[in-house]
Design a protein around this nucleic acid. Structure first.
Lengths: 203, 203
DNA sequence: GGCATAAGCCAACAGGTGTTGACCAACAGT
DNA sequence: ACTGTTGGTCAACACCTGTTGGCTTATGCC
């Protein structure tokens, strides 16, 4: 699992001499997958970016799918919601995702790009949703029974903004400032997570 | 422009003997692009589905990009919002998009799939947004100046739901009923289109 | 120093891609 | 009945893809 918070993973299982190359490959792969999608990101191009031979990619990651799976292994680092004012949960969450996206544009763009095209990609997204978003929703939902549904609604809005802003680049979404997005999307996410049930005007 | 409301375009410019083949190609292309994305949908496979030779695709659509552009030429058939109760605009719109997606799953799925991967695809989506969604927003927005921004927010939520439900297939979004989606997303879209400005609780 | 092992490069394979041009068959107009 | 045009097929080109195995070089251990 890629821990994006620290340059070196906290627990290094077995430091190999080839770690530099491995990382170069992974970095190049992130950028290429993000920029070109799964099919057009060729192993040859990734290897060229990393400054090594294409066969090294196969040696270290087995196959193109294997390399991509390694790229998809992402930790969203979602903060706990315990200390947060329950009425601010929406804005806090939107804010966090915006930071996350700005910091790691390649990985997340790659995820959306390839998730829409590739079977492995779609499964990766589903896994991240299940393992990281749903548990978070469980912390703030009134009824834990509904956590998955509410998490999914939240995901639909946040991924929708990511899609239109970072991938499709619809001009008005690109023009939005960070604060505007938080102000617009915060209450939406807030309602999806905490409103008692679908109501036109929560509160 | 594909008018999906009637099997035959209202104004036929010049009925050719090859129209049957042209349509067979277009239909097969829609399905293949939707199922496989741009790169993996090969001309050979499309031709096989249509029961003709690959070279016919080139003859009639010039290139693979040309064929795809033809597939992307979509009319969303958005209804006018004049007669609608201004407080129901959100639900009406979400409802309409759900119908649209169920009826034309291939075209719209293809659009999202390829829009995220392909430059031409992304431009196609931006054009549809600009020519069809923004004008609609202009009808219902309080300040026409903000129409584009509000349309973009609406698009982010509706495309986000389409993405998670029809493309990524996150289980909880697939499980949602039509009515639930309208109840949840309707007020969101309503607020994006008509609320005076970002407020935690509109009304 | 000797040597096993890891790191890396090179060249090639087998298959699939978009695209092209030569060729044949059927129709329409005269 | 002849002929120009349109609809359609076939085989090939040039290129690019993921992947493989053999080879050379450097490293670390005894």
């Amino acid at each position: 699992m890629v821990d994006m918070s620290s340059p070196t993973p906290p627990v290094a299982p077995a430091p190999r001499r080839s770690d530099a190359t491995r990382n170069a490959i992974l970095t190049a792969a992130r950028e290429r997958f993000a920029a070109d999608g799964y099919e057009r990101a060729t192993i040859r191009a990734i290897a060229r970016d990393a400054g090594i031979d294409p066969s090294m990619v196969m040696r270290y990651y087995g196959s193109k799918e294997g390399l991509f799976a390694a790229v998809l292994d992402v930790d969203l680092r979602l903060p706990g919601m315990q200390g947060v004012d329950p009425r601010e949960v929406g804005e806090v969450l939107v804010s966090h995702f915006l930071d996350l996206w700005e910091e790691n544009r390649e990985v997340l763009t790659a995820m959306v790009r390839v998730g829409t095209t590739n079977q492995t990609g779609a499964e990766g997204v589903r896994r991240i949703f299940r393992d990281q978003i749903v548990p978070l929703a469980r912390q703030v939902c009134p009824d834990p029974e509904q956590a998955a549904t509410r998490a999914a609604l939240t995901a639909s809005q946040i991924m929708g903004m990511a899609l239109t802003r970072y991938v499709l680049r619809l001009p008005p979404t690109v023009a939005l400032s960070r604060e505007e997005i938080v102000k617009w999307l915060g209450p939406t996410v807030q309602r999806y997570l905490t409103a008692p049930y679908p109501t036109p005007y929560p509160g």
